[in-house]
């Protein structure tokens, strides 16, 4: 089974069992957002510990892209920058 997730309104295909990070990565998206110093957010530890691949799951909140499995129609966007 396959499907699509939405990354900033862009359709990204996935295969069953893939994490958000795996599907995004395969679509050439490694830059998942911007950290405090302007550095890229990207996968680092791969097991949900380092918090470097944090993305926003629409309607749910921040989550680690390396841990969440894709589901059809899931809308994902970069983490917002803090207001200060």
């Amino acid at each position: 089974m396959t499907g699509h997730i939405l990354w900033n309104d862009r359709d990204v295909p996935y295969e069953q069992g893939e994490t958000l990070a795996q599907a995004l990565n395969r679509a050439g998206i490694t830059h998942l957002g911007t950290g405090l110093a302007g550095q890229s957010r990207s996968v680092f530890c791969g097991i949900g510990q380092c918090q470097n691949c944090l993305v926003i799951l629409e309607g749910k909140g921040p989550c680690e892209a390396c841990r969440v499995l894709c589901a059809d129609g899931l809308a994902v966007s970069p983490v917002g920058t803090p207001h200060d």
Partner: peptide, 11 residues
């Protein structure tokens, strides 16, 4: 909490 927020966070 941590710093991470989505677009719907009311400042």
């Amino acid at each position: 909490t941590d710093r991470a927020v989505g677009n719907d966070w009311p400042d």
